[in-house]
Write a protein that binds this DNA or RNA. Structure first.
Length: 187
DNA sequence: TGCACGATGAAC
DNA sequence: TTCATCGTGCAC
C-alpha cells in the first residue's frame, strides 16, 4: 500500500478555498513523543481568506498576533483563545498574502483520546499548543498527509462559527465539512 | 496602565 | 444564557 503523500508547500500555496476543501479527509499527524504518534482525519475546516476578511486575525496586520499568517504557506498558526484553548491553522497562499485554514474537527485515527469536535478540543487531543506556532508543516513530527485514496465525500458549506461581529463576512459560507461525519462539531 | 473581548466549550 | 480564564488590541 502506498505511503500517504505528505502535503508540502505547493499544496498550501494555492487559493485558500481550494486548500480548505482539499484538507477534508487528510490526516493530521503529531509526534508528541517516542511511541506517541497521534493521527486524526480532518473532517471540518474554516477558511480565513485575507486581511480584508473582517473575521480574520490577519486584520490586525503583520505585527499582530497572526504574524505567522503573513509568512510562507505550509506553516502552523496556533493561537490561544478564551483563556483556555488553542486553535490551529494551516497558512495558505503565497508569502505576504495573509490567509489560513482553521482546523475545526478531526476523526480519531491513532493514539487520539478525548473529544475532538471543535478547534479547542482538537488541539487538546492532539497536544497542540503555542510551542507549535510558526512550525513548518513539512516536518516529520508535525504535518498533514493526503488521503491514501480518493474517498467519495460530500462537502457541506456553511457560515463560520463564532464570528458574528464580522458583519457581511460572517454570512459567507467559508466553513466546510464532510456531510454525515459524526465528528463534525456543528453539523 | 487599564480594560473589554474573543476563530471555545460546558454547565445551567 | 452564563461562566471559566488570559493574551491581545486599543483607548486613555
Amino acid at each position: 500500500m502506498p505511503r500517504p503523500a505528505r502535503l508540502g508547500r505547493r499544496f498550501f500555496a494555492r487559493p485558500t478555498l481550494e486548500v480548505a476543501r482539499g484538507l477534508l479527509g487528510a490526516t493530521l499527524v503529531h509526534q508528541v513523543g517516542p511511541g506517541d504518534r497521534r493521527v486524526g482525519r480532518i473532517v471540518e475546516v474554516e477558511a480565513y481568506v485575507g486581511p480584508s476578511d473582517r473575521a480574520s486575525h490577519a486584520r490586525f496586520g503583520p505585527a499582530g498576533r497572526a504574524r505567522v499568517m503573513f509568512g510562507p504557506p505550509g506553516h502552523a498558526y496556533v493561537y490561544f483563545i478564551y483563556g483556555m484553548y488553542y486553535c490551529m491553522n494551516a497558512v495558505t497562499e503565497r508569502e505576504g498574502h495573509a490567509a489560513a485554514v482553521l482546523l475545526r474537527a478531526i476523526e480519531p485515527v491513532k493514539n487520539v483520546e478525548g473529544r475532538t469536535q471543535g478547534p479547542g478540543l482538537l488541539c487538546r487531543a492532539m497536544n497542540i499548543d503555542k510551542h507549535l506556532n510558526g512550525h513548518d508543516l513539512e516536518s516529520d513530527d508535525f504535518h498533514i498527509a493526503a488521503p491514501r485514496q480518493e474517498v467519495p465525500q460530500v462537502i457541506v458549506k456553511r457560515p463560520r462559527v463564532g464570528v458574528d461581529y464580522a458583519r457581511r463576512w460572517a454570512k459567507r459560507h467559508l466553513r466546510f465539512y464532510i456531510q454525515g461525519n459524526p465528528f463534525v462539531s456543528r453539523p
